[in-house]
Every structure is written in C-alpha cells, then in structure tokens.
Design a protein around this nucleic acid. Sequence first.
DNA 1: TTAGGGTTAG
Length: 458
Amino acid sequence: MAIRLSTRLLNVCIASLCKASRLDKAEAVLVDGIRMGSLPDVVTYNTLIFAYCRYVGIDEAYSILYRMREAGIKADVVTYNSLIAGATKYCLPSRSLDLFEEMLQTGVSPDELTYNTLMHCMFTSGYPDDAYKVFQEMIEKNVRPSIITYNTLINGLCKSGNAINALKLFRNLQRLGFSAELVTYNTLINGLCKSRRLGAARKILRELGDSGYVPDAITYTTVMKCCFRSGKFTQGLEVFSGMMSRGYTSDVFSYCTVISALVKLGRMGEAYTCAQQMLSNGSGLDIACYNTLIYMYSTEGKLDKALQLLKEIEESSLESDVYTHSIIVNGFCKMGCIDVAHQQLHAMEVKGCGSNLVACNSLIDGLCKVGDVDSAIKLFNSMDLKDSFTYASLLHGLCKVGKFHMASKIMITCLREGINVLSSAQRAVLAGLRRMRFGKDAKKLRTSIWKARYHMPP
DNA sequence: TTAGGGTTAG
C-alpha cells in the first residue's frame, strides 16, 4: 500500500538527501511524493534551490524556481537569498542585481542576509562602490546590520585595496554597538598582511590575543603565509610548528601553504615529509591539495608522478582546474619538453579551462630557454592578455639572442600600457644596449622607464 | 551570508 507523506516529512526526507548532495534521489522523492498525494511547499522547493546552487549550478536552480511557480508557489525571501548567493558563487553580479530587483517588484522584502549577500557579491565582482551603495540602502531601509555585515564590509574593503578604511571601520565597531569576532580579527589581519601593513597586522594580532578569542587554524595560516610572503621563512615555519603543537594537525590549507614554501626553498625532503603528513592527517583533501602535490613533483622533474595524480583527480569526484594544468605545463617547460607542454596547453583548452595566462607565460619562458625565440615572439603576439611575467620572459629571451632593439621597443610598449617591467628585465635590456654601444638608445629607454615610474606622459 | 591555502620571470 502506498503511503502519503505529510509535507513536513517530505521536506525532512528531501533536506537530508540534499545535505548528502544526492539530488537525483531528492528529485525522485519529490516526484513520488507528488504522485502519492503529498503537497510540496515553499520549504520543499527552497531546499532544492539551495542545494542546486551549492552543488550543481545556477541554471539548474532556476529550473526549480520555474517548477515552483508552475506549482503555484510564490518565491519568498529564502528563495531569493539562495539564488543571489548562487549567482555570487558563479560570479554573476548582474544576475544577483536582477534577482534583487525581481524580489522588490514581486513584493518580497529583502532581509539582512539579502543585503549581506548582495554586498559580498558586489565586492567579489570588483564593484566596491556598488557594495557600499547596497550597505547604504540597507541602512535607509531600516534593515539592521549584524557583525556579519561589518565583517563582509571589512573583508571587501581589504580586498579592494582599502585596508586603511577597513581598519577605521574595525576601530568604529564598538561605537556602532558591535564587538569584533574571531572572523573579524582574521579578516583584518589577512587584509593588512596582504597590503603589506605588517606593523598594523601585528597590533591587531596582539589585540586578538587580549580579546579572549583563541587563534584558530585560519589565524595561523594567515600569519604563516604573511611571513613567507615577506621572505621570513624561518619565522613562518615556526608559526607552522606552533600551530601543529596546539593540535591543528588536520588543516589542509596550512599544509598546502608550507609545502609550497618548502618547494620554493628547494627543501624537498621536508616538503615530502609534510606532504606525507597532509595525506595521513589532513581532512577534506581538495583540488588545491592535489595541485600542491603536483607542484612538488613537477618542480623535482617527476612529471610521471604529476600525471599520475592528474589521472587520480580525473577518476575521482574532483575536477582539475587552471592551476593543475598551468603547474604541469610549467613543469614540462622547465624540463625543456616544449612539445609536451604544448600538448598540455592544448588539452587545457579542450577541457574548457581556457587559454591560461600563467601557462602561456611558462611556455614563452620555456621556448626562450630552448633557444626558439621566434616561436616565443609568435606566441607573445597571439596573446590578448599579458602581464609583467609575459614581458619579463620574452625580454630575457630576446636579450639572450642579442635582439636588444626589439626588446627595447617591446619594453616601451609595455611601459606605455602601464604594465610594470620587472627590474631584472630592465637591467638586462639596458646593459645589452650599452654593451653593443647603443648608448643613445639606452638613454632613450632609460627616459621612458623614468617617465613610467613617475607617471609622466610618454 | 563573512576569514586562511595551490601556478609563471631573474
């Protein structure tokens, strides 16, 4: 005999299946439930929309929204909040704004979560001014912000290069009636570290110590990374051992940070030991962990091991990303295997990772190093997007084969485009011109470098 | 709904 589930029980079943990311099964339960006379409600559909945004994609989540409407159920604030968060996750700021407009038009009032999510979306999409407008609208509409609102603002300000205002806001929290949380401290310490305000970061770290909060794995990783970034490797490794001795031994972010630093230092033995620890103690190994391991093997020239890991990724539920392929392309370039690197770059494009700037830069460098500067120039000319690494690699390659005038011309173009030319590349071109007794051209180039440095017209 | 990690030059 078929049993008709109550709506509440139907929702419990669907929620537990969604939580386990078994969406096909959740859908089947919904279809069977309806067939047997159960009545899904707004909670049923919201649960599915949330899960589709999280595990599948925004378009699939929209299809649930349409089915919900067909069933005569009106979307509520929870529905829109999930969809806006989904659009944020997939970097679709205009979709977020459209959803926000739609909810206003259909008479659904945004709540604190709506504004926080929309603000976060605007910051992560590179529109800090719009994010601030969202915050102002939130205040105007009398929606009370929470500490999460302020954490989002502090984070967004830091990430958009405005750490000083983030610090000011942090100092104003008490006046606004809020106390900083561990998230607030971690966010600000990270922002200050990344904007190289190490003195201020140290001060906030001390304040965190006095606050009663206990630094967590995120605090340690943030500080450790900051040490590595500023070349303080011993200090960074001390932070790591301090973290381990306090029992934070399963955090994969910290392992990735330290393995990568050890590889860069050439301390491969320690890197392998740490990798082993990550594999045995780390919980929730993700694509970044695999990329770190691939980086470790590639740097040592163990490309067979790297490719074996790539195969493991492809056979698992994980998906390789631009980092994975760029690391492998770079590994082959370093070994002088340019043809294989080319094949990898092609495979990357076929897979939909797109042509990647880092991989192309590696290939330019690799081509120059094996003496094929002409192919490097060809690749350089075919690239729409270039950065200081692109220019540095090509300029060094051109200098190596004595093409100083071409290097000089390219460097002037680069400076005019506002891209920073690394000082090593500048020195190589200038020294080459002088050595070949092209003193006048060297002087001209020097003037262009000065004008670019002091933002003068060319 | 907010915080940390993974790739390229010399």
